[in-house]
Write a protein that binds this DNA or RNA. Structure first.
Lengths: 192, 192
DNA sequence: ATGATTTCTTTACAAAAGTTAATAACCCTG
DNA sequence: CAGGGTTATTAACTTTTGTAAAGAAATCAT
C-alpha cells in the first residue's frame, strides 16, 4: 500500500525503516468513487493526497462552467496547494475523475511529521519546488504557445489521458472552448 | 546591508547571531546598472538575488519581442527560479529595470548553507511555497479574469509600478499587446 | 434495454484581440 | 540642445476565438 509513496519520496531523501514506520502511521488509506468531490472552493484544503490509483482533477469554477487547472495522475501528491499551504480558503476545487485509492495526510499531521522526521522537510521543499517548476511550465506554454501548439504538446506527452478524460475538460485546461478544440482537431486532421 | 534580508527570512524562522554570521558570509554584495542582464535564457541560472534596491524584470523572449513574466520589487528573492532550481537551461531571462543593489548567493553555496544552517531549509521551503502561491495567483488571474479586469487589479495593487515600468512591459505581463492596453485604458477613461 | 444525460462536432454570427502603420510626445545621451 | 531612440496612442483591417444552437454519437442509470 505504501510502496509507491516510498518509491516517490526516496527520490528526494533516504529513509530508514524507523522513518518509514513513523511516516506510514501518519497517512490513512481512503477509497473514493469517481466524480467524488475532495475539496470544494471557498473551503480550506485540510488534506494532502497521494494517489495510489485513479485520476484527480483540479479546477476553477467561473459562473456556471468550470476550467481545468491540472490533472493529477497516479503516484503524485495532489491537493488545492495554494489553499493547503496557506490554510486559507481557496478558489480551486478537487474531484476524482475515476474511482481512486488515496493516501491521506492532514495539514496538522504533516507539520508534526516535519518535526518527527526532519528529512521530510527536504522532501516537502523538493515537492514544492517541483510543483512550482510544473506550474511555470504550464504557464510558459500559456504565454508562448498558440492553443494549437498546446494541444499538440498535450497529445504528444499525455496521449493516455485523451482516453480517460472528456475533451471539454482538456479544452478548458488548454485555455479554449470545446468548440475551438474541435476546430483545431479538424484543422490538423485535414492535414493543416 | 543585511538588515532587509534578515528582516525577510525572520518571518520564516528565528536565527542566532552565529547563524547570521554564517549566512552573511555566503552572500556577496553587488551593484548593477539599469538595463543590465543578470540571467540569459538558454543559460543555467547559477545565482539567486536578494534585492536591496531596484527593480528586476523576468521575461520570456518570443521571436523578436519579449513577454514580462514577473517584476520583482525590493526585499524579494529573485532569479529564473525554474532554471535555478533545476540547474538546467531555462527559457527565461532576468534584467534590471533600474540601478540595483543586490545580495547574491550561488546555487552551490546555497546547498552548503542548507547543511551549515539547516533552518535555512525551512526558509527555502517557505519561499518555494510562496513563489508557488504567487505563480498560482497570477495564473488564476490569467484564467479567470478578462484583460480589462487584470489591468484594473494591477492598477489597484501595484500602482507605483506604473511610474517605474514602461506600459508595454506591463501589457505583456497582462497577456495583451500595448495596443490593446491602450484601448482598455481609453475605454475606462471614457467612463466605460 | 431504453430513455436520459453527457459528450462532441458543426454551423453561423458576434466580439475581442492582434497586426501594421502612422504620428506625436518623451527622454536620454553625446 | 539636437537627434535618435523609446514610448504611447490611434486608426484600419485581419484573424482568432467565443457564443448560441442544433444534431449525432456515446455513455450511464434504472
Amino acid at each position: 500500500m505504501f510502496t509507491s509513496l516510498f518509491h516517490y519520496i526516496s527520490r528526494f531523501n533516504t529513509f530508514t525503516s524507523e522513518d518509514r514506520q513513523i511516516i506510514e502511521s501518519y497517512f490513512t488509506f481512503r477509497q473514493v468513487p469517481k466524480k467524488f468531490n475532495l475539496i470544494k472552493k471557498g473551503k480550506i484544503a485540510r488534506e494532502l493526497f497521494f494517489i495510489n490509483k485513479g485520476l484527480l482533477r483540479l479546477y476553477y469554477t467561473k459562473d456556471t462552467d468550470d476550467i481545468t487547472a491540472f490533472i493529477f495522475r497516479e503516484h503524485l501528491f495532489a491537493s488545492c496547494y495554494e489553499s493547503f499551504l496557506r490554510q486559507a480558503p481557496g478558489n480551486q476545487s478537487l474531484d476524482t475523475l475515476e474511482d481512486a485509492e488515496l493516501l491521506v495526510i492532514s495539514y496538522d499531521d504533516l507539520q508534526t511529521l516535519y518535526k518527527k522526521v526532519p528529512k521530510m522537510e527536504t522532501v516537502a521543499r523538493k515537492i514544492a519546488e517541483q510543483r512550482f517548476i510544473n506550474a511555470q511550465l504550464i504557464f510558459s506554454s500559456y504565454i508562448l504557445d498558440s492553443p494549437e501548439e498546446r494541444w499538440q504538446k498535450f497529445e504528444a506527452t499525455q496521449s493516455d489521458l485523451l482516453l480517460r478524460v472528456p475533451h471539454h475538460m482538456i479544452a478548458s485546461f488548454l485555455g479554449i472552448t470545446p468548440v475551438s478544440l474541435s476546430r483545431i482537431r479538424k484543422r490538423l486532421m485535414d492535414g493543416k
